[in-house]
Computed example of a mutant assay.
Amino acid sequence: MRILFWNTHRNVDINSYILDIVNQNEIDVLVLAEYMAEINELNDNLKQCKKRLFNWNTKGCERIHIWGNYIDVTPGEQNKYFSVQIVNKQYIMCGVHMYSNLNGEHYDERVALAEEIMYSIKHIKQRLQTEHVIVIGDINESPYEKACLSAKGFHALPALQILDKGSRTVYGKEYEKMYNPMWNLFGDFKYPPGTYYRVESKLYNPCWFMLDQVIISQSMIPLMVKEQLKIITKCGKGVLYTDNRYPNSNISDHFPIMCEFNI
């Protein structure tokens, strides 16, 4: 399963870029946030792609659209900020687009939303008797911030092995661990250092942010194809960045991300 996520920045002319990236990378599941282009056109063209992607049911979710080439797909909870999908009755996939800090800080609200997402997923896991979870989307904060790392949020650790203890106890309450492989793409040893760039007149401003992430359950770790975890910066139509090598907001202010699992 090769998954692509992209926050398309409400660009109404982005369909050709989406289709190019989907075809070039032979994507199985496409998850979009802030999609405002011509959806019927995209639907028709995705059906003609190499993998033939069809629109999944995300009714009730305002911020996420999902397409895929899997037939056995059942929608789980659909919230304004997230869409849960059950693939082949055992893989729980959740596309998310969480609160932004553009109009004020929302760290606590994102923790509460992450807790709500994990609560929803927990009930599906119990019902299906599965442990396989993929959360992908625009978290709107970096992996080292509260919603990602807090045990009450995604509890998504930068390092987790399949043989490690799968949970952690805090003040007598047990919290399941998740794994965030996006930590491995941080920094300037390899371009790009993040998925989003923003300069503000603040004392705290990393400039580069890893807002777009994939977070997985411990059971998915051996299934992940590590070399296919990528931030995509170019396609057949050209590069997705400016001359300064920042995301080109005329296309999107976010770079897309891709991941793959052997399922």
Score class of each variant (00 low, 15 high):
I66K: 11
L211Q: 02
H9S: 12
C235H: 05
Y196R: 02
V29S: 09
I124M: 14
P193H: 05
M182S: 15
M36H: 15
G68M: 04
F54N: 13
Q218H: 07
V111H: 01
L211P: 01
H106R: 15
Q228A: 12
F82V: 04
R63T: 07
D164V: 14
Q213M: 00
K173E: 14
C61R: 03
G60N: 06
S142F: 04
Y17R: 02
M224E: 04
P181H: 04
N25T: 12
I3W: 01
N250C: 08
V87Q: 06
K237G: 13
G194N: 00
E62M: 02
V22I: 10
W56D: 01
E116F: 00
T74V: 11
I124A: 02
E174V: 12
S219M: 09
S201P: 06
Y144T: 02
V239C: 04
L163G: 01
M220G: 09
E131F: 04
L4P: 03
E41M: 08
D20E: 09
I221H: 13
L53N: 00
P222G: 11
G236T: 03
Y191F: 15
L157P: 02
H254P: 15
K80D: 07
H9V: 00
Q161E: 10
N69E: 10
I117A: 00
D44W: 07
L53D: 04
D20H: 03
Q129L: 11
N180L: 03
T233Y: 14
T74E: 10
I221N: 04
N205C: 12
P143D: 02
P75T: 12
W67K: 07
S249Q: 15
D253K: 05
L149F: 01
H97I: 04
V214P: 07
R2M: 08
K237N: 15
T8S: 13
R127E: 11
V225M: 08
T242G: 05
I232L: 10
H155K: 05
M93E: 03
T74Q: 03
I92H: 05
N248Y: 15
M98T: 13
I257W: 00
S83C: 14
K230I: 01
T8M: 06
D44T: 11
M210Q: 13
N184E: 14
S83H: 06
K152V: 08
S142C: 12
K230N: 06
I216C: 06
G238V: 06
K173Q: 15
M258Q: 15
Y196D: 04
L223R: 11
E145T: 13
K50I: 10
V84H: 02
P222K: 11
E176W: 06
V170S: 04
E77R: 08
S150Y: 05
N262L: 11
N7P: 09
N43R: 07
N79V: 05
V12A: 12
A151N: 03
Y81R: 14
L53I: 02
P193I: 08
P247H: 14
V111W: 03
H254T: 04
L30R: 04
A151Q: 10
K190A: 13
P247V: 07
G238F: 09
E34I: 05
E145V: 12
D28F: 10
N250Q: 13
T8I: 14
N205F: 09
N248F: 12
H132R: 09
F255V: 02
I64V: 14
